[in-house]
Amino acid sequence: MVLKWLGRLLLLSFAAVILAPLLIVLFTSLKTTPQFYANPLGLPESLSFHNYQSLFDGQPMWGYFRNSIVVTLATVGLELLLAGFISYGIMRSGKRVGAAVFGLFAVGLMVPSQVNMIPIYTFVHKLGWSNSLTGLIIVSASVLLPLSVFMLSGFMKTLPKEILEAGEIDGAGEWTLLARIAFPLSAPYLAATAAFLFVIVWNDLLFPMLLLNGKDKLTLPLAMLQFRGEYITDYPVLLAGVVVTALPMIALFIFLQRYFISGALAGSLKG
């Protein structure tokens, strides 16, 4: 009985630990700067969207959103195609070839981005791809291949082989089998992988920071780092930025929770 109440107390306390910082950020973003300094921890007296106004007036926020959306959608789309193809190839190859290709990518799982960020940076500059969203998309998609091949081929292994064999007997070529059978049957897995990758790419700081520098090319996390320089003493505006950049992700999460959670489950197994 005591344990049961202790358990409930724990759940409630942790809910408070999660919610309190998020709520104080939301409240602060709705205060005017004088209100904030007069009473930093109180509830906002009246809702003021002034900080949001000055953020959108002072910054090309829509441009940052556009960059983040373009980079994220293109990277995740390209990633699903490339990794989906490879995972399909692994599934359809014999044991030895499949294991060799899988092994090639598994090696990459061991190498964190911090290890190859310097040579990637210099190589991209040599190629003349720096400060280009396309360059960032191609680099991000390549760097994420080990993780996505790991996730997708793990999923695809569980597809029933008989259906593909039946299709083969009916004379379907590999592309037809992929487009008509393997990808449609993997749809929930592709969605879970996409959700997991979406969070990684949308929130990525390292590669945008290495590869982008023009103000018109920044993605949201990178833009936020720059705001800090400009609004260093102005928490309300800075935190309005946090709210604005978090909202799309939270909205997506509310609608697509299932995929976020199954993606996180599968993605965490790589350790």
């Binding site: 910082p21 949308w202 929130n203 946090v242 999460f253």
Partner: peptide, 18 residues
């Protein structure tokens, strides 16, 4: 579980600022 999961989907930059 969903509530506890929310910080996971925020960027480290946002979490860092918060």
């Amino acid at each position: 579980r969903s509530l506890y999961f929310v910080p996971t989907i925020l960027s480290s930059v946002s979490v860092g600022f918060i």
